[in-house]
Deep mutational scan, measured.
Amino acid sequence: HHHHHGSGALAALHAEGPLAGLPVTRSDARVLIFNEWEERKKSDPWLRLDMSDKAIFRRYPHLR
């Protein structure tokens, strides 16, 4: 159930192989992290948004 927010940013994801479903670039990863943060913020208003490279690598090590 993907609803768009204002920016309408869509992340490019790997379609197949071992990385299927994972973001292709760091900016794609940022979109995913932001979208998930927006969702989680509803139940956790104090949740901090962390889109640093460090956060991205921790989450998606293949982007190193």
Rank of each mutant, 00 (worst) to 15 (best):
H1A: 13
H1I: 12
H1M: 10
H1D: 11
H1S: 11
H1K: 11
H2A: 09
H2W: 11
H2M: 12
H2G: 10
H2S: 10
H3D: 09
H3Q: 10
H3F: 14
H3S: 09
H4K: 10
H4R: 13
H5E: 12
H5Y: 13
H5G: 10
H5D: 11
H5Q: 14
G6M: 15
G6S: 13
S7W: 10
G8R: 10
G8D: 11
G8E: 10
G8H: 11
G8C: 12
G8Q: 10
G8K: 10
A9P: 10
A9D: 12
L10C: 11
L10S: 15
L10P: 15
L10R: 12
L10W: 06
L10T: 15
L10D: 14
A11Y: 06
A11I: 10
A11Q: 04
A11R: 03
A11P: 15
A12K: 14
A12M: 14
A12R: 14
A12F: 09
A12N: 15
L13K: 06
L13I: 13
L13Y: 04
L13W: 01
H14C: 05
H14Y: 12
H14V: 04
H14W: 12
H14R: 01
A15D: 13
A15Q: 14
A15R: 10
A15M: 14
A15S: 14
A15F: 08
A15Y: 08
E16T: 12
E16C: 15
E16W: 08
E16S: 13
G17C: 05
G17V: 02
G17H: 03
G17N: 10
G17Q: 03
G17L: 03
G17T: 02
P18A: 07
P18T: 06
P18W: 05
L19R: 03
L19H: 08
L19Y: 11
L19I: 03
L19K: 04
L19V: 03
L19Q: 05
A20L: 09
A20G: 05
A20F: 11
A20R: 11
G21Y: 03
G21N: 05
G21K: 03
G21C: 06
L22I: 02
L22A: 03
L22E: 05
L22M: 07
P23H: 00
P23R: 00
P23M: 00
P23I: 01
P23A: 01
P23N: 00
P23K: 00
T25R: 06
T25L: 05
T25F: 04
T25C: 08
T25S: 12
T25V: 02
T25G: 07
R26C: 09
R26Y: 09
R26A: 12
R26W: 08
S27G: 12
S27F: 15
S27V: 08
S27L: 15
S27E: 14
S27H: 15
S27Y: 15
D28C: 05
D28K: 01
D28H: 03
D28V: 04
D28M: 04
D28G: 05
D28Q: 05
A29C: 01
A29H: 00
A29R: 00
A29M: 00
R30W: 06
R30C: 12
R30T: 04
V31T: 10
V31M: 13
V31I: 15
V31F: 07
V31W: 11
L32Q: 05
L32V: 09
L32Y: 04
L32M: 07
I33A: 03
I33W: 01
I33Q: 02
I33E: 01
F34A: 05
F34S: 04
F34D: 01
F34H: 06
N35G: 07
N35C: 12
N35K: 14
N35E: 10
N35Q: 15
E36I: 04
E36H: 05
E36A: 05
E36R: 03
E36Y: 04
W37K: 01
W37M: 02
W37F: 08
W37Q: 02
W37P: 00
W37A: 02
E38A: 14
E38V: 15
E38F: 15
E38Y: 14
E38L: 15
E39H: 09
E39R: 09
E39W: 06
R40C: 07
R40E: 08
R40S: 10
R40K: 15
R40D: 07
R40F: 07
K41F: 07
K41N: 09
K41Q: 09
K42M: 08
K42D: 09
S43F: 12
S43I: 12
S43Y: 14
S43C: 13
D44A: 05
D44V: 04
D44M: 06
D44C: 07
D44G: 04
D44W: 07
P45G: 07
P45L: 06
P45F: 05
P45I: 06
P45Q: 09
W46A: 14
W46I: 08
W46T: 15
W46Q: 15
L47Q: 07
L47K: 05
L47Y: 14
L47T: 11
L47P: 06
L47M: 09
L47A: 15
R48Y: 07
R48I: 14
R48A: 11
R48L: 11
R48T: 13
R48W: 07
L49Q: 02
L49N: 02
L49F: 05
L49G: 14
L49C: 06
D50M: 03
D50L: 04
D50G: 01
D50T: 03
D50I: 04
D50F: 03
M51S: 05
M51Q: 05
M51H: 03
M51E: 03
S52F: 01
S52H: 02
S52M: 02
S52L: 01
D53T: 08
D53G: 05
D53W: 09
D53M: 09
K54W: 07
K54T: 11
K54L: 10
K54M: 11
K54R: 10
K54I: 10
A55Q: 08
I56F: 01
I56K: 00
I56R: 00
I56Y: 01
F57C: 09
F57A: 10
F57G: 09
R58L: 13
R58F: 11
R58S: 14
R58W: 08
R58G: 12
R58E: 15
R58V: 13
R59K: 12
R59V: 08
R59H: 06
R59A: 09
Y60S: 00
Y60W: 15
P61H: 02
P61L: 01
P61M: 01
P61W: 05
P61Q: 02
P61G: 02
P61C: 03
P61K: 03
P61V: 02
H62Q: 01
H62E: 01
H62R: 01
H62C: 01
L63T: 01
L63E: 00
L63C: 01
R64E: 11
R64F: 09
R64K: 13
R64M: 12
R64T: 09
